[in-house]
Computed example of a mutant assay.
Amino acid sequence: MKQIASIGLCLALAVSALATKAMAQTLANRPALDFTGAPSPTGEDPVFSRSVAARFAGVPLAQVLTDIRAQGFECASDYCTRTVMEDACANAWTIDIAADHTLSGRHSRLCMGAAEDE
């Protein structure tokens, strides 16, 4: 009985490894997230939003989270954010995760006030 359980565990691990490899190959064949767009005042960035949809459509949420964490995103329960400082400005790219696991992307930019000339 112990051998059957061991064989079952080995098979489950092998199937899991193959599924992970297949998903990694799937993401490798998809376009990368595009961080080059400029945000509107409402946080809409069609370039980033389209890249989120193109990369992750139909991908299981666990794989999405693994991929975006590897790209520097930090995740909470219903969104993941990547923040990058550029001079006195902070760019924040956010991937929102709806209850049905659909994803949407937005980009905001916040700049500190410039020092006044003396």
Rank of each mutant, 00 (worst) to 15 (best):
A5F: 06
V47E: 00
E44G: 06
I97M: 04
F56E: 01
E118L: 13
M23L: 13
S108R: 13
K21C: 05
L103T: 12
A62G: 01
D100M: 01
P41A: 12
L65G: 00
A92H: 02
T66F: 05
V64Y: 02
D87I: 01
I7K: 11
A76I: 03
T83C: 03
F73H: 11
A17T: 08
S104A: 14
A38C: 01
S6M: 05
P60L: 11
E116Y: 06
A19K: 10
K2R: 13
G8Q: 12
T26H: 02
E116C: 09
D100W: 06
A70M: 08
F56M: 05
A115S: 12
L103I: 03
R30I: 06
I68C: 14
L27Q: 01
E116A: 15
R50N: 15
D45F: 03
D100F: 04
L13V: 07
G37R: 09
W93Q: 09
D67V: 02
R69P: 00
S40F: 07
G58R: 07
A5R: 09
G113Y: 04
S108M: 11
V15E: 02
P60H: 02
T81N: 14
A88T: 09
E118S: 08
K21P: 00
L33E: 02
C10G: 09
L18K: 02
A5I: 08
A19I: 11
V84F: 00
T26D: 15
P39K: 06
H107F: 12
C10M: 13
A5H: 03
F48R: 05
L11D: 02
L13M: 10
C111K: 10
A17F: 12
K21F: 08
A90P: 06
P60V: 06
A70E: 07
A88G: 03
L103Y: 07
A76C: 02
R69V: 10
I68W: 01
D87N: 12
R30E: 05
D87W: 05
T83Q: 12
C111S: 11
P31F: 07
D78M: 09
F73A: 10
T81H: 01
I97R: 03
T36N: 12
A76G: 09
M23N: 07
A70S: 15
